[in-house]
Structure formats: C-alpha cells, structure tokens
C-alpha cells in the first residue's frame, strides 16, 4: 500500500514537472525570446511568434551590425581601386616633400638602413601600409602620427609618386652572403617545416595578395627587422596571419640572410 501511494505521488510529481518544464521552455522559445529579438529586427510580436514556429514568409530583417575587428581596414574594393587610379603623383611629390623625404629621401632610397626604400615600391603596398598606420593596424612611433595627418587622397598620391621612381640598384659590391639554402627557402620553401617559398607571394611579377610589397632591392636590415617583428607578433597587419605564421618558422640567421638575399644580385 505504501508503495502504491508512493507510486501515485511520483507519477503526479513527474507529470507536473514535465508540464511546467515544457510550458516554461515553450514560453521562452516561442514567445518571449522571439518577441524581444524580433523587436530588434523590426518584427511585430505576432510575426515574430509565427516565425518561431516556422510559419509565415521570411520578412525583411534589419541589418545587424556587429563590429568586426579585422587585421586591416583596407579592402580592395572598386572605390579603393578608383582612388589609386585617380592618384596624382605631382601632388604626391609635394605631399612627400612635407611628410616623407626627411627619412625616405626625395628619390625614395633611404640612407638609414632601418628605414625602407620606397622607390619602385608597389603603390598598393605603400597605400595599404599608410592606411594601416593611420588605423592603428600597424604601429610605429614615427610613422603613425605622420599617417594620421594624411587623408586617403594624399596617401594615394604619395603612393603613386614613390611607385613611379626608379628603384635603387642592387648592391653588387660584394657577393651575397646568402647561400643556396637561403635561395631554396626564397624560391622553393621548406616542405619539412611547411614553409611556403617567399616567391609564392613576393614574386617578380604577379604574386600573392595585392598589397604584397616588392622585396628586391629593399634594405636588408629593414627586411630582417620586419621578419622579426612578424615572428614575435609585434607587427600584425598581415592578412590571415600569413607573414606571422611564416616568420615564426624562420631562424634569426635565415631572417638576416633573406634580407641580404633580396639586396644583392643573383
């Protein structure tokens, strides 16, 4: 008898628990949450409830804007191309005179080995780096404030100006210290380290992403310092972490020799 009574009590409890649980979850899932969220999407409560049941035609939900934090804000869209195509290198020369030549020199070949050469550099690369400095995607004590003083038009003009200059010649005064193993990394990569070749992107002609800079003739000390910065993650404006992943696999010696490799004739 006691067991029967216990059984009845339990049946009631189980039934009540079930009903309450389902009622609460149905209220949340079909009414409360859809109505609240539907308000943000511009839906009236009735439509929101119908849609929670899967009934009714899809309405026009208001666009949800979630702030994305990309590595860089530069997008290779039609307006960007148009801005670069419309760049005026004469105006760029004037702007460079005010902002750039102190370090990068008027001919774009910097005397300071820590400062990159600009002459003959890709306009896409220069423009992208200037924008990254301005947006904070790339940080440098000297460059960040300078880039913040430029607008998009001035950046495109400066980029066009330096891209139009004749690049510095390669340093043929002494043989390259980079041996065949460095050339192998540059041209073929190292599959045992899943290291792609530098030339996969930094090719002489068409290569990787549009913003890929020209390395040939670049200051060796600058190339080395940038590889170190990528490896440590101090520089992080590379799309999809490409350069950070690659640089992290290089030894310090290889970084130095890769810089030399691109600065000497081969």
């Amino acid at each position: 008898m006691a067991m029967d009574r216990l059984g009845r009590t339990w049946r009631l409890r189980v039934g009540a628990t079930l009903v309450v649980f389902l009622a609460v979850m149905a209220a949340l899932g079909f009414v409360i949450i859809p109505v609240i969220e539907g308000r943000q999407a511009g839906l009236d409560p009735f439509t929101a409830i119908c849609r929670a049941f899967g009934i009714g035609t899809p309405g026009t939900a208001a666009a949800v804007t979630a702030p994305a934090r990309p590595e860089t804000h530069v997008a290779w869209t039609a307006p960007t191309f148009a801005a670069l195509a419309a760049a005026d290198k004469t105006a760029g020369a004037t702007a460079a005179q005010a902002a750039c030549v102190a370090c990068h020199a008027a001919d774009g070949t910097s005397p300071d080995p820590a400062v990159p050469h600009m002459a003959g550099q890709s306009a896409f690369a220069i423009f992208k780096e200037l924008r990254d400095y301005k947006d904070g995607a790339r940080v440098n004590d000297t460059m960040s404030p300078i880039a913040q003083s430029l607008d998009d038009k001035e950046m495109a003009d400066v980029a066009a100006y330096y891209a139009s200059l004749k690049p510095a010649g390669l340093d043929a005064s002494h043989p390259s210290p980079a041996g065949p193993e460095i050339e192998a990394i540059a041209l073929r990569g190292d599959p045992s380290r899943t290291l792609p070749p530098c030339a996969a992107c930094h090719a002489a002609g068409a290569g990787g992403p549009l913003e890929t800079p020209v390395l040939t003739g670049q200051s060796p000390a600058y190339v080395e310092s940038q590889l170190q910065a990528f490896a440590k993650g101090e520089r992080h404006n590379d799309t999809f972490m490409g350069m950070r992943a690659i640089a992290a696999k290089l030894t310090p010696r290889e970084m130095a020799l890769l810089g030399a490799y691109y600065a000497t004739p081969r």
Partner: peptide, 11 residues
C-alpha cells in the same frame, strides 16, 4: 526548422 523548436530541444 524554426528557432522555437530548436530552443525547446536545446532546453
């Protein structure tokens, strides 16, 4: 499936 049934089954 609609979000309501997904919510109920999640619960």
């Amino acid at each position: 499936h609609s979000s309501g049934f997904k919510f109920v089954q999640m619960s």
